[in-house]
């Protein structure tokens, strides 16, 4: 591989790593707080992309009912991101409310909650299918694509936006979790959930906040993803969701930096494997590597074995 194609692959790897990282975050945050693997999260990403599609097309005036003024595509892009993040956070919070909270209240075992999560994901996929049909939709071009070429390496502004967004989210979340009281409460819950209300903290508020963070980041990933690869279909969240989950585990589930590093590691392995081997081998080899890694360090890159003192 010459240096040029190395950098070309590097940029692609970082873009995919960013997608994985943004989604992995939702898995890791919810797991950190509830010890729940929220298997519906990949479908929250899909829902985010669809909400983004409808928000964007609405803002562009594609429907009979539309805004009185015409917005420039860049403004539409920013508004779409914000509105989609808010609406998708609402979907995530609703999911927690109707699916997970009642089970938690009754003290249901973790297996039941995980199964519920899987079913919730299927319901989101098939609900979408029933509601909107199987036909694919094309996300409108909101960002005018600019292609830069530096030293023979080409990349688009979309890729740069994706990578910057992931880095920005990383620093934002690290700050929230390290410095704010609600962030501390999130960490405290993962250590000893029963002691948290003794601090005057309503657990449900912390859980809702966690779902808001995770779902809005999945929405961000969803809109950015369809901005780069503008095809929407109901199952678009399944595979990428699984991969992001694996990334979260490889990074050390429950750890924010783990989700990011795990996401990037997965992105790098995938892209560089595909650069060397035939593309049909990509996932096989990539996941072989990750499996090997996990068998050596089952807690993931940053994870520590839980010695829960309860």
């Amino acid at each position: 591989m010459d240096i040029q194609s190395f950098f070309q692959n590097l940029i692609n790897a970082m873009q995919w790593g960013s997608f994985y990282a943004l989604i992995a975050l939702g898995y890791t945050l919810v797991y950190g707080v509830l010890l729940l693997i929220n298997f519906a999260h990949g479908d929250i990403f899909m829902v985010g992309a669809y909400i983004g599609f409808f928000v964007a097309t609405f803002l562009l005036g594609s429907y009979a009912f539309h805004l009185p003024m015409i917005l420039s595509p860049n403004v539409v892009f920013v508004l779409t991101l914000l509105i989609t993040m808010i609406l998708t956070a609402g979907v995530g919070v609703t999911l927690e409310r109707v699916a997970y909270r009642p089970l938690r209240r009754r003290g249901a075992g973790r297996l039941y909650i995980v199964i519920t999560a899987l079913m919730a994901g299927l319901i989101l996929e098939n609900g979408n299918l029933a509601l909107l049909g199987a036909s694919r939709r094309a996300f409108p071009d909101l960002i005018e694509k600019v292609v830069y070429t530096i030293g023979g390496v080409t990349f688009t502004n979309v890729k740069i936006i994706v990578i910057l967004a992931a880095l920005g989210v990383f620093f934002l979340l690290e700050t929230i979790v390290r410095k704010t009281k609600i962030g501390m409460a999130m960490r405290a819950i993962s250590y000893d959930r029963v002691a948290v209300p003794l601090m005057g903290i309503p657990i449900d508020t912390v859980i809702v906040f966690t779902f808001i963070l995770g779902s809005s980041m999945a929405a961000l990933a969803g809109v950015l993803f369809v901005s780069a690869y503008p095809v929407l279909e109901p199952y678009m969240g399944a595979m990428i969701g699984w991969k992001a989950f694996i990334a979260a585990v490889v990074g050390g589930i429950g750890e924010i930096r783990g989700a990011f590093i795990g996401g990037f590691v997965l992105g790098f392995i995938e892209i560089f494997v595909a650069a060397v081997f035939p593309s049909t081998f990509r996932d096989l080899i990539a996941f072989g590597i990750l499996l090997l890694f996990l068998s050596i360090k089952p807690t993931g890159i940053f994870g520590v074995a839980r010695a829960q003192k309860i």
Binding site: K181, A185, R187, A188, A195, M199, G200, K309
Partner: peptide, 19 residues
């Protein structure tokens, strides 16, 4: 049942959550 993954100061700060 102090929070072992937090610092001393963070444990105390957390207790002021509702104040």
């Amino acid at each position: 049942r102090v929070f072992g993954n937090l610092t001393v100061l963070e444990n105390l700060k957390l207790a002021t959550y509702a104040r």
